[in-house]
Design a protein around this nucleic acid. Structure first.
Length: 857
RNA sequence: GCCGGGAUGGCGGAAUCGGUAGACGCAGCGGAUUCAAAAUCCGCCGCCGCAAGGUGUGGGGGUUCGAGUCCCCCUCCCGGCACCA
């Protein structure tokens, strides 16, 4: 055995062996129980970042642990290869996105292999390849014919200078990121998935997922946002026609307090009112500036303008003014809201600002309504009762809603309705580097889906986008085609799909990546659902909701048999790091990588020019903030096992991990010590592990700790998924082993047992060194997870803590079998108790067996 | 703004069901080894205090024999907000 720990040699040899023996090939037909362990596939941005290392190490630990426990494990890997960064790189460097992407994939694949992940590479896929996306196009055409996909107008960010649709990310302070032009909202036709049709099932399905974190289920439930309320109409007459303005409200009980109605700037009624009102038209134009992002909308200053139009209150018949409000979202509900300033905080502020009337219609006993300011109870539907509401006075929330809904229904002006916050999923993107939408536009036949035998619609890979418009529009060879129905000249759709579509079904394709006869074959049902899915918490809503939705679409197409794709979910916290930047005169920020920044005399400066940079705070490692830490340097300096060990040790998986270079040394030191300890033991000759007999007291105690550790580590990995404490427990065990003296045969057999078990327990985390050490300790034996010896755990005497008035005052040794009365007697007889009791009788004695005694004086 | 989460020594974190706060590691300090250094090994290490003891888990209140953990209020930080992935 080598005396020195040489990670590079060990890792190279181990990885070569794994590749040669196809050690991680998942058998489609094994009779062992399956364990499908999936980590979210990476976007091939260039090189791995620490978030990837963390994500894939967590997955690898679980995969390897389950393999050691006898499962038939599948851990696949692929590439979420379409996306915006490839186009940005093309604009910056003039390289076609395809070429850039494939080069990145090659580099990152090599990095993943260097980290020693137990991946079945035979299942690798990339979403930008036609043999993958053709099935996505095929499903699209099926769903289009079924009506699950439809076309409608939708609002996008429009950069008038670059003549390009911008992603929300590309709108900075209301301006285009490259042109600096004020961004406008523009309506264009887009294809939509009818996800709202599945809203109820997506909501109730959450209850069938006990293996998902509560916080994720809560976020999804809130996102779907099921609310029951009333859809009601305010009638009006315009240009001689009787019409109705519909609104949705969850607070119909406050209907008698409506003092105005507010519509979105895009609402048809606003458009009509603006036709002969230049001031209103100008205001609506102003509302159409800025980004479409909901966060931006919600934080804008609330602005409004009277349209001059009036509608009729459905119950009182009073006239109600119609305002345009920039805070009303056209995409939610009816694009119009009834305003009850007295009982809605947002309406209250709006009414005060524009001097609109405020009418109290809800009262709470003991509280006095005042116009001076908003009070929490104004909006409290649990305590309030109707006041100033005529026949509804005295009714509580539910009774009032029922009565008002009934009266509205009688007039044909409203009914109870269930409303979802969830909106249909718009998937059209005016971008080149994505999956082409398989539609042909024919002047006589309309939108015609591409027939299955003409799929895939292949995306040309030799295109270099320049940042203006969609380059596919300039490719005559792509655009011009003939109509599949009438054979006439037609145009191909040039929009591509949202990349979330590709990532919504890749987990299923891994089961049968080579299947050329269809989207999925029967192997999908053999492997699905995914037993453990691991990915960043930032995907808690969108990706995970879309994937759940897609699974149900595929189920309804007969492609999969299960209802949910992911049985267990681990949402890993983000890897965060400091950000640094400089700002030029135009306000444009340039971000610097933490590796290029150092601190001199307490000031952050750039290493290259020693000039200061601005510290921007700690954020998720991202390309846009350039604060990613390159794990490659870590692997080069210490080896993959140290990188893996440190990432798992530094924080529990669900918490965010603040990156710091310090601490890596410690992980490496531990591996060196482990190597040395095994080396020294092996030098003295390997022996058989302890198999029974009388042990010296110290060896017996160590053996008890060993089996406690085996119990804890298994629980930490399998149930708690908290790897940092698993590692800490093995470190403690190794520290204790170091203190175990004695070279007698029995002690040596316990040392052998301990080392075998410790190495095996570490194997999922640091597989290279563990494999090498195990081969020295137990030549020719396969790594097996150690079993707990219950007999080793038995103790004769236990130590209890002794409290007086809840404060720790001493401890107590009692026989393990002692009952409550015996413990209480021993506690009262103790020196510490006598001191605090001072001869008096205790008020109360709390005995928690196995834990403590608390004497209340 | 709305939804979700977080805050514990100088630092990362532990405390799993309300029961010894600070496991494990980093940094630091002292010692051994060394011509010297690195590496390695041993010991110390929340704060105040000579000590006895007191005090301490973002802030304020509460429940309990006992609260980092449960309840109410607040502050700050992070994630998501539908075209970043």
């Amino acid at each position: 055995m080598q005396e020195k720990y040489l990670p590079q040699d060990i890792e190279r040899a181990a990885q070569a062996k794994w590749a040669h023996t196809q050690a991680f090939r998942a058998a489609d037909d094994a009779d062992r129980p399956k364990y499908y362990c999936l980590s979210m596939f990476p976007y091939p941005s260039g090189k791995l970042h620490m978030g990837h290392v963390r994500n894939y190490t967590i997955g690898d630990v679980l995969a390897r642990y389950h393999a050691m426990r006898g499962f038939n494990v599948m851990q696949p890997m692929g590439w979420d290869a379409f996306g915006l960064p490839a186009e940005n790189a093309a604009i910056a460097n003039g390289v076609p996105p395809a070429k850039w992407t494939y080069a990145n994939i090659d580099h990152m694949r090599a990095q993943l292999k260097a980290l020693g992940f137990a991946i079945d590479w035979s299942r690798e896929l990339a979403t930008c390849k036609p043999d993958y996306y053709r099935w996505e196009q095929w499903l699209f055409t099926r769903l289009f014919e079924k009506g699950v996909i439809y076309k409608k107008m939708a609002t996008v960010n429009w950069d008038p200078v670059d003549a390009t649709v911008l992603a929300n990310e590309q709108v900075i302070d209301g301006r285009g990121w490259r042109s600096g032009a004020l961004v406008e909202k523009r309506d264009i036709p887009m294809y939509f998935f009818r996800i709202t049709q599945y809203a109820d099932e997506l909501l109730t399905g959450l209850d069938t997922l006990p293996g998902w974190p509560e916080r994720v289920k809560t976020m999804q439930a809130n996102w779907i946002g099921k609310s029951t309320g009333v859809r009601l109409a305010f009638p009006y007459t315009l240009d001689g026609h009787d019409e109705k303005l519909w609104v949705f409200t969850t607070r119909a009980d406050t209907l008698m307090g409506v003092t105005f109605v507010a519509v979105a700037a895009e609402h048809p009624l606003a458009t009509r009112a603006a036709a002969n009102n230049p001031a209103l038209a100008a205001f609506i134009a102003e509302c159409k500036q800025g980004s479409v992002a909901e966060a931006d909308m919600a934080m804008m200053e609330k602005k409004g303008m009277d349209t001059g139009l009036k509608v009729t209150h459905p119950l009182t018949g009073e006239e109600v003014p119609v305002w345009v409000g920039n805070y009303v979202l056209m995409s939610y509900g009816e694009g119009a809201v009834m305003a009850v300033p007295a009982h809605d905080e947002r309406d209250f502020g709006f009414a005060q600002k524009f001097k609109l009337p405020i009418k109290q219609v809800i009262g709470v006993e003991g509280e006095t309504f005042s116009l001076d300011g908003w009070a929490e109870w104004y909006g409290d539907k649990t305590r309030g009762r109707c006041v100033n509401s005529g026949k509804y006075d005295g009714l509580g929330y539910e009774a009032a809603v029922d009565a008002i809904a009934a009266d509205l229904a009688a007039k044909g002006l409203g009914e109870k309705k269930t409303q979802f916050r969830l909106r249909d999923w718009g998937i059209s993107r005016q971008r080149y580097w994505g999956c082409p939408i398989p539609i042909i536009h024919c002047t006589s036949c309309g939108d015609v889906p591409v027939p299955a035998e003409q799929l895939p619609v292949v995306l040309p890979e030799d295109v270099v986008p320049d940042g203006s418009g969609n380059p596919l529009n300039k490719r005559a060879d792509f655009v011009h085609c003939s109509c599949p129905k009438c054979g006439g000249a037609a145009r191909r759709e040039t929009d591509t799909m949202d990349t979330f579509v590709e990532s919504s079904w890749y987990y299923a394709r891994y089961a049968c990546p080579d299947f050329a006869g269809g989207m999925l074959d029967q192997r999908a049902n053999r492997w699905l659902p995914v037993d453990q899915y691991i990915g960043g918490i930032e995907h808690a809503i969108l990706h995970l909701l879309y994937a759940r939705f897609f699974h149900k679409l595929m189920r309804d197409e007969g492609l999969v048999a299960s209802d949910e794709p992911f049985a267990n979910l681990l949402t890993q916290g983000m890897v965060v790091a400091d950000t640094y930047y400089r700002e030029d005169a135009a306000g444009k920020k340039t971000w610097f990588n933490p590796a290029d920044v150092e601190t001199k005399d307490g000031v952050a400066v750039l290493k290259s020019d020693s000039q200061p940079v601005i510290v921007g705070g700690t954020e998720k490692m991202s390309k846009s903030k350039n604060n990613g830490v390159d794990p490659q340097a870590l692997i080069d300096a210490y080896g993959a096992d140290t990188a893996r060990l440190f990432t798992m040790f530094a924080a529990p998986p669900e918490q965010s991990l603040e990156w710091s270079d310090a601490g890596v040394e410690g992980a490496h030191r531990f591996l060196k010590r482990l190597w040395k300890t095994v080396y020294e033991h092996v030098q003295g000759g390997v022996v058989a592990a302890f198999a029974g007999g009388e042990l010296p007291e110290a060896a017996k105690a160590l053996r008890r700790q060993l089996h406690q550790t085996i119990q804890k580590v298994g629980d930490d990995i399998e149930r708690r998924k908290q790897f940092n404490t698993a590692i800490a427990a093995v470190m403690e065990l190794m520290n204790a082993l170091g203190k175990l003296d004695g070279d007698d045969a029995m002690t040596r057999s316990v040392r052998q047992e301990t080392l075998e078990a410790a190495v095996a327990m570490l194997a999922p985390i640091v597989p290279h060194i563990a494999g090498a050490l195990y081969a020295e300790l137990k030549p020719a034996a396969a790594l097996a997870w150690p079993a707990v010896d219950e007999a080793a755990l038995v103790q004769d005497e236990i130590e209890l803590m002794l409290q007086v008035n809840g404060k720790l005052r001493g401890s107590l040794r009692v026989p393990a079998a002692a009952d409550k009365a015996a413990i209480e007697a021993a506690a009262l007889a103790s020196e510490a108790a006598q001191k605090y009791l001072e001869g008096q009788a205790p008020k109360k004695v709390v005995v928690v067996p196995g834990r403590l005694v608390n004497i209340v004086v």
